[in-house]
Design a protein around this nucleic acid. Structure first.
Lengths: 194, 194
DNA sequence: TCCATAATTGAATATTATTCATTTTTTATA
DNA sequence: TATAAAAAATGAATAATATTCAATTATGGA
């Protein structure tokens, strides 16, 4: 790793700590610089502005998320099993990484600037992967073919994001993963009794 | 309406305009005061701080949302029809009120302080109403009884919030309501082909 | 008309993201 | 090793702004 990359990482590390104990608005560049043992101005040699720095923090974690997800999918061949694993893994990962969850769900996910960031590119790779799984399920005959793949993905990611966001706003007081099989059941079978 | 309430409304009106063309961070109290033809200090006689003022803006619209929703439910007696109407109305309302949608979905909904606001109380009334409809559906035998009502509500509100948020981040370039029947179908019947 | 209370004011304060001219460090070359 | 050129780091200065508060003005009742 080049010297330049090292310093970049050093700043990201300090920023992760400061943003982690706070939020975008309340975290200050001065504290980040202090913690990284550099001058405030130096931050701006490596990042365009505060937002750019903020959006750069979860790149690593997001990559980790995608890689581990692919690992967890290994050995599962039926599309329904893959969706079930996706639901479990998604909740499990955010439960295990609450600071990441807070930043991503409550701050970045609702920011228009985030869409252009490197981190968002990785998330897009994940959502593409989800789309593939759905397509697979339709082609193999497991999932209905009369509904568009985007609508199905919307259902899936919608309920997951909602569940994580709710959990965060409720101060993470209960177990995020518990009861995930109810969600699976609803996704597969809907709410109709017949 | 008392003089005090009038001035309060006047400030909220100015704030709605300023926040509407911008966002929480970029809107300035000085501009709001200017537009309301008052001094900056006066704002703080009526609102605890900038956030309190911000959270007060959508109270009226939210009340409107709830009242109109109840109107739309009139004459519908089957729970499935009520859920279908809920889905349609939710999307229709945000489509018709994009500035409200932006504030609520991208800024307030992800803020811990919002939970304590008056506006959130109204939203809670709405989500309680949704819960009632679900319960009704279970009792009448239309909806499955083996799934908790909270899980069903999570599914519903999750996919709706996700859809509106996506639409906002994509600059509202497509029709939010179009294709809502696919969502209804998925909610009722799930994704399984069998 | 006068007084007490309420409402309004806007200058002062404190905080902070960002810039940029200057200084320090590193690297390449002879 | 000595020197020059390039790169990196610095931190004081700037500009913007949420919030406070002592002073001023308006209001309504006796």
């Amino acid at each position: 790793m080049s010297k330049k990359d090292l310093r970049r990482q050093q700043i990201i590390q300090a920023a992760a700590e400061v943003f982690g104990n706070s939020n975008f608005q309340n975290a200050s560049i001065s504290e980040i610089a202090q913690r990284a043992n550099i001058a405030e101005g130096t931050v701006y040699q490596y990042f365009k502005n505060k937002e750019d720095l903020f959006f750069s923090i979860p790149a690593q974690k997001t990559e980790e998320f995608c890689e581990e997800f692919n690992l967890h999918l290994q050995g599962i061949h039926d599309p329904a099993g893959k969706i079930r694993k996706l639901i479990w893994y998604y909740l499990y990962f955010f439960k295990s990484n609450p600071a990441y969850a807070r930043s991503l769900m409550l701050e970045m996910r609702v920011s228009k600037g985030f869409i252009k960031s490197e981190t968002y590119g990785m998330i897009r790779a994940f959502t593409e992967r989800v789309l593939e799984i759905i397509k697979e399920g339709q082609e193999s005959g497991s999932f209905r073919k009369d509904i568009g793949i985007y609508a199905i993905r919307e259902l899936l990611l919608g309920v997951l994001e909602h569940r994580v966001t709710r959990w965060l706003l409720k101060e993470e007081k209960y177990d995020l993963v518990e009861g995930y099989d109810e969600i699976c059941d609803l996704i597969f079978n809907g709410i109709k009794s017949s």
